[in-house]
Structures are given as structure tokens and as C-alpha cells.
Design a protein around this nucleic acid. Sequence first.
DNA 1: GCGTCCAGGTCTACC
DNA 2: GGTAGACCTGGACGC
Length: 298
Amino acid sequence: MKIAFGVPDNFSLWRTVYSHGWCSLPPFEVDKKNDHLKRVLQLSNRKMIVAEISQTSKAKLNIFAAGKISLKERQDIILQMKTCLRLDEDYSEFYREAKKHSHFRWVPYLGAGRLLRSPSVFEDVVKMICTTNCSWAFTEIMVGNLCKKLGWKIDDSGWMFPTPKAIAEVTEKYLRKEIRAGYRAPYILELSRRIENGELDIESWRTSTLPTDELFMEVRSVKGIGPYAAGNILKLLGRYDYLGIDSWCRKKYFEIHRNGRVASDKVIEKHYEPLGKWKGLFFWMDVTKQWYDQKFPF
DNA sequence: GCGTCCAGGTCTACC
DNA sequence: GGTAGACCTGGACGC
């Protein structure tokens, strides 16, 4: 069944998909040959479907989902994809701010700034823990193992990301040895078990009314989440006050602004301070600008 | 083939 | 509050 829905004028599916590395982590999958983004979605009635998303015109997205889809399921699919593609957020203020700075005028022109995220906060947080202190290739291995060994398989089309319950039921040893999560295993396990026993509700972070500094501290209270991970999780929650600096970003910043000379994180933070509450997003735009020169940058 | 280092950090103990 | 050391793993690199 084909589902079509409208998008804002400057929306670009591929600039959103390739906003960061999430598109290469399952259940997301980019089909370059057929020009669509694919992922398994679990609907509110527990039914699982494989959605293939493509942009056929400037103002319209198409989702193909095999089989019979009811009206309610169709609305559910659209809602989840709007969440993932950040179509539920207003970027007009960010674009107005970008136009004030010659260095960032390309951002609204290209419709950049929407960072791809998962349907659930849980999936984003676990994936973020899996990005810490390792190469990207290793992150792909850990997330792949989580989906293949603890998620559900949908025919030959892919895997669903595991639920907190599915992870909470395994042992730390299993996460260390089978998922290859290493020292991250107790962090992922504790997070899943706290969610499962009702002690922690991280899905509410997306609609939290807490001031960003307080929300940052709440995110930081999860073991395994330091300043880098918390800053980037906040970006996926729609808050851009923190930079979320990692070694890759540092290196890019030094290349762009300091001719390769190193500097402390405080120097980097001071550089973006005038950009106010959008500084984290401007920082990310700055270090990933060259990605926007091509449709499939990686 | 083997050892070393590094990679999209975080936690804990200690000062 | 700042800092050192430990922590898992895979891959690149030099020998």
C-alpha cells in the first residue's frame, strides 16, 4: 500500500537521512539503488511492518508498506515517520538565525538541520551509548547484534530494534559476549531494567517541559551517558544548547577554524556561544557541511 | 603472525 | 573541580 503525505517546502529526505550516521544503523537501511530509506516499524497495535520511504516531489513523501493497512495503522505509520524525519518540529526560527550569519546561509537554502532519529527515545539512547569510545564500524557491529539477536525478524526484510524488556531479560554476560558491548553492557542493562520496572520514563523526554539544563542533568543521570552522549541525545530531543563534542568533531573543528591547530573544548564552546540556544545544531552543521555536497556522503 | 595504538567516552577514585 | 587510570573491542599499522 502506498501512503503519501505533504512536507514543508524546504524539506529534503536525503539531507535529513544523511544528517548523521543513524541511517546506517539498523533497523534503518538506505537502499541507494531504489532510492528509498527503509525501516521496520512497530505499530501501536503491536503489528510490525516494513516501511520504504521516498521523496517523489518537492512537497510530497511516499511510504510503501506491504500488505493491507487500516486507516488507523496508516496514521500511525505517518506519525512515526514524521517523528523520525523531524517533520513535527518547526525550524523557521533556526533558519532565520542562520540567515544572519554568512557562514550558515547555506543551511536554510539546502533545508539542512533535521537530524534523523528513531521512533523511540530508548533506541536513540542505546545507540548513543554504542557510539562511545569506539570506531563507527564497531558501533555498527554492536547495534547489528542487538537487532539480530534480541529484536524481531520480519521475513527477510530486516529486524526490529529490541524493546527494553527484551534487553532487560538477558544477562550482562550475554550483552558482553554475544552483543560485543563490552564494558557498555552494564550500562545498557541497567537502563533497560530501570525502564522495564517503571523506575525511568525516558520516552517522556521528547515532550518534557523541563528547562534544557535540567533535562541535560536528567539524561546525564543515566549511567554510561557522559557530556558527549547527553549533548547529542538532547539534539535528538529537539534541544540544541549543548555541543556534544567528540574526537571526530574536534578534529573537524580544528581543520575548519584553526588550520589544524588543537585547542580545548572551552575554546570550541566559546566560538559557538553567540549562537545561543541553536549552538549545538550550528556546530553540527559546521563540521558536517561537506556532507551536503553529495546525495549519499557515506 | 604478533604487538601496539587508536577510535565519534565514561566512570571512579583521588587530590 | 580537575585529573589519572581502567575499561571492551576491532581494525589499521609497523615490524
